[in-house]
Design a protein around this nucleic acid. Sequence first.
RNA 1: GUCCCCAUCGUCUAGAGGCCUAGGACACCUCCCUUUCACGGAGGCGACAGGGGUUCGACUCCCCUUGGGGACGCCA
Length: 464
Amino acid sequence: MTVRTRFAPSPTGFLHIGGARTALFSWAYAKRHAGQFILRIEDTDIERSTPEAVQAIIDGMQWLGLAHDEGPFYQTQRMDHYKNHLASLIESGNAYYCYSTKDELDALRESQMQQGLKPRYDGKWRPEAGKQLPPVPEDVQPVIRFRNPQEGVVAWDDLVKGKIEIANEELDDLIIARGDGTPTYNFCVVVDDWEMGITHVIRGDDHVNNTPRQINLFKALGAAVPQYAHLSMILGDDGQKLSKRHGAVSVLQYHEEGYLPEAILNYLARLGWSHGDDEIFDMQQFCQWFDLDHITPSAAQFNNEKLNWLNAHYIKSADLNELALDITKRLSKLGIAVTAEPALNDVLSLYRERANNLNHLASEIAYFYRVPEANEADVEKHLKTEIMPALQYLYEMLVNTEWTPELIHERIAHVIKEKALKFPQVAMPLRVMLAGVAQSPSIDQVMAILGKQEVLRRMESYLN
RNA sequence: GUCCCCAUCGUCUAGAGGCCUAGGACACCUCCCUUUCACGGAGGCGACAGGGGUUCGACUCCCCUUGGGGACGCCA
């Protein structure tokens, strides 16, 4: 049997980091077993689903490179399937119409809560042998409820959490179709997972409690129950649950914030899953290694520091031309146009070793393409009057120097010797004059790449 | 409240009864490299939540406690 997994988001928002990991694991599991990965949009909640959200999810997955083999399937386009199965469930006595109103149910729930009971449907309209059902009210659109077994337990061997067992008496008769006839989540999931031949359901562990209901539904439909793997959730950097107002950002926001998809992917893969001590690996490797046995059952806290470390790694090992393309866009957002000289590839070769973020990298090298505004504190600290003559002297020597790092270095060394200075006494002021700040890579390298004309021009503005 | 799940360094994790005086990674600290800041290299700090069992032996198995999380919708 070929493995078929699915990612089934509801389009009520963007693809956040937890969803991305669920998608990644489902995708990788399918790849690992030469199976199919299916994308299904669970949009039965028409009120909250939007086409923008669908697009945002697809964009997010595309950025990460998580391509689906089938789909996207939309539940709203599969209504006839659900209706058919709904009818057959009624037919077989596994489902029934319930005329309890929302108000009645709300009141019921409230009183049960007050009594310290688990809120659940009271079975008022559940047909039983020899039971007299109440008279059908005329002005109520009935919902359809699933007739859940009342005895025994439903158990499954969760591929992440191990054996889980829940007593049927904990479950009530869930609504599988609303008053308007539209099917609800738990029912659609089961029909879809069945009809789409899903063999492994890999999803967040907030669904653990839905699983026994779904298994009962599978059985009532006479369908084979898939295997389940419930992933624990991802917590924020502070150990708190991620929520809309608390860091549950779109994966695409990571793009905007200067992260490479490779870094996000590698980070996510390692969050809650392990392959011995391996930390850095690409998706090809991941797809060969990935298994469900090494997924941690406990929740994992997101750690930006480690993501940054991985990002640094992938910036260093990125294809230089692709990196240049990306940085060009980021510079353009800063209002800076990259020119042919100095060559961006040269600049990046010099700078990417030290970067762990693409945005930082872009702003650090901005001075190659725009005269920087010097940092006041650095000017004050390094451009002291007593050093200016030495810089003036250097400037004059540079005018007639052939422009190679070696020769530039030689001139600086010469000035230092003549004026009895230490290297930093000249290098630091030079950095401030050229880059606007006192930190940069090797100053002669910077000068070589910046170009003779530009170096002299920037020095001039300080020397007169 | 009821049910379900979880529990190793600050964080992510290795660990399938002896390999564990518990390993790796991020972060942190020290030193080295050095032309500043980084990169890099070498060290260091640092954990099996508590209590009972089971066993010759428990980080590993069982139970309880504690702590965390999740679910209890005509949402998904």
